[in-house]
Design a protein around this nucleic acid. Structure first.
Lengths: 340, 340
DNA sequence: TCCAATTTTGGGAGCGCTCCCAAAATCTAT
DNA sequence: ATAGATTTTGGGAGCGCTCCCAAAATTGGA
């Protein structure tokens, strides 16, 4: 061991021990804030730690404790335009910020094409440098969830799983209720031909929003008019709206704000007026929703809170503070602006 | 060690060795594809590995090799609306995909408020569970870069650093040239009062785009008209454009597409026509640029390629295949549509 | 068949940490 | 001053891997 002690080269506990005149066990006790260290010793060790800017080797610690304080976020492939809709960026930001605040770091896993999906999922399941996982969508194979379970790797799903399973932790919002509330609002406005633009059939949240729409429509004895899915994109919303224009609808509930924004452009391009000719509503309440012309009526979902709850949930499991599985459904809120 | 050998519980090299009738050194040689293993032995070991679905403990490996195959991405705080402009989402996607394809995982670091910026930067510098770092913006203190250097932690900056420094690796695009080309295009269209909406004074890329604008303007003997920065947001572009409307400009070069889209909305709200009354141009060539009404003339920057080059660069350094620092400037391309 | 050269394989040691057990030091009461 | 109780501290061992050196096995030529 060379004599250059105050340098940016990495040190270990033995180095700190030697410099502060104690053993590495005592240094470890100071770092981990164990009791039974005299104040005098503690201060001396902390001074040396600060002086050489020591940071423990987390790989070595992980080898002993089997814990890394790392969580993964998996955003599955089919939401391939994951960032054209602000939902995922906001979620990612919320999860990362919450995890960092709780002393955890975050590994990001995206799948970009359907072809390499299995590769990435395999990598994620078997990756040994993270303690647990947040799966940011329900669009994953059952087999993937099963493999996580078999591996004993804790996970939380954002979105409700398709089947009840006692091992699955999840956080969701009231998608069905949101769809119901927005559609009912349009019914109360005495709209006669109310349509729905769904997002993605594979996604549970999309199906639930559509179920809410259908419940309100059937209660009113009206006909359901469902467009092809808009794939949660602006262009998709635009195209699906074009299909609806031929059907003389006077209101449309879109499964996301971004599709609503696209739909609005199609309405405008057809020379029609909102909300006079066609009322339009969305879901999410992204920042842009208030800035559209007219400002968008929408269902507010607490995306940042979703991320916080999912992160706090997985970390509670990893820190051993939660033993049973947890499920949490966050409330939505109808935001009435001018588009409907 | 219990006798339950085919289970999802984690195994180690000794387990695999016992099951395949060799030593843990031989198992390690097979896993790492070392030469000097007989084919018969290799097949036998691989069969057991597959049968119990064994994956090595990467923390233990890291302890020996001092290598984790993890890179970090840092998106600094000031781009706090990091995902309202599609630049960062696309970059993130590109980096994550490239890294995964090269057998690396990606840790995400965002700073969300100016207050905790120092905390997060401290965490990032000292975090021992990643080999290197991609810094996705030049908006970081010199002291942070210096600390990375002192730590010997390899990094690549996306964007040109403010000062030349032999230790700094970076990737950028031709921002100045892009600003110049777009402004020159407007000059050639015989626009008389050409303005600029910058993004963020702190950002080198923003200043460079403005420098390009100024070079073209000065070459044409025209007056520069510079709006308050639009902070790379749609609303910011809207507001900055409102300021410019009073100054009877007939063309505006915005430092990003998203600000151009906001500016277009302000122009439309003022009852003016594009490109007749005001020509508008942006930078980035995001997907939406082609879909605006009229379609946006812009400077195309290869965002996905930026991410690829940065990722390949940092991994080359980490794999020891590159010893000198590298700098790469990617070309931009003027995309002439209908807005200018 | 024997021997030297080459190939294949095994196991000690250590990476840097935490935990546990025991030694050493300190404190308090008699 | 002494002894028992309590607090503080030290060091062995092991987590799971890789590397290196040496032992064992194999091969080929004389």
């Amino acid at each position: 061991m060379d004599d250059e002690v105050v340098s940016s080269k990495h040190h270990n506990l033995e180095d700190i021990a030697r410099l502060s005149g104690v053993s590495r066990s005592t240094v470890s006790r100071v770092i981990n804030q164990h009791p039974n260290v005299s104040e005098k010793t503690r201060q001396r060790v902390l001074q040396v730690i600060d002086q050489v800017d020591f940071h423990p080797n987390l790989a070595a610690r992980a080898l002993v404790t089997q814990k890394l304080n790392v969580i993964g976020i998996l955003i599955p492939h089919i939401v391939s335009k994951v960032f054209s809709d602000p939902f995922f960026p906001l979620l990612l930001q919320s999860i990362t910020n919450t995890a960092n605040q709780m002393g955890y770091s975050v590994t990001l896993w995206l799948t970009s094409t359907e072809g390499d999906s299995d590769d990435i999922l395999g990598q994620v399941v078997n990756h040994r440098l993270m303690d647990g996982l947040i799966v940011a969508s329900t669009v994953v194979d059952e087999s993937f969830i099963q493999k996580l379970d078999e591996r004993g790797k804790p996970f939380v799903i954002i979105g409700s799983p398709n089947r009840l399973d006692p091992h699955v932790n999840y956080v969701d919002v009231e998608n069905e209720i949101g769809g119901y509330l927005l559609t009912q609002h349009m019914i109360k406005q005495q709209r006669q031909r109310i349509a729905h633009i769904p997002g993605l059939e594979k996604l549970r949240s999309s199906r639930d929003r559509q179920a809410g729409y259908l419940r309100a429509i059937h209660e009113a004895g009206m006909d359901a008019i469902i467009a092809p899915p808009g794939n949660f994109s602006e262009e998709g919303g635009y195209r699906s709206m074009q299909v609806l224009l031929d059907q003389q609808v006077d209101a449309v509930f879109c499964a996301s704000d971004i599709m609503a924004i696209g739909a609005m452009q199609a309405i405008r391009a057809a020379g029609l007026c909102m909300p006079n000719d066609i009322a339009i509503g969305g879901f999410d309440d992204i920042h842009q929703a208030a800035l559209t012309n007219p400002p968008l009526t929408t269902v507010h979902q607490p995306i940042l809170r979703l991320g916080e709850v999912a992160t706090e949930g997985i970390i509670s499991i990893l820190d051993g503070r939660v033993e049973t599985s947890f499920h949490q459904i966050l409330p939505v809120e109808l935001i009435i602006r001018q588009s409907a």
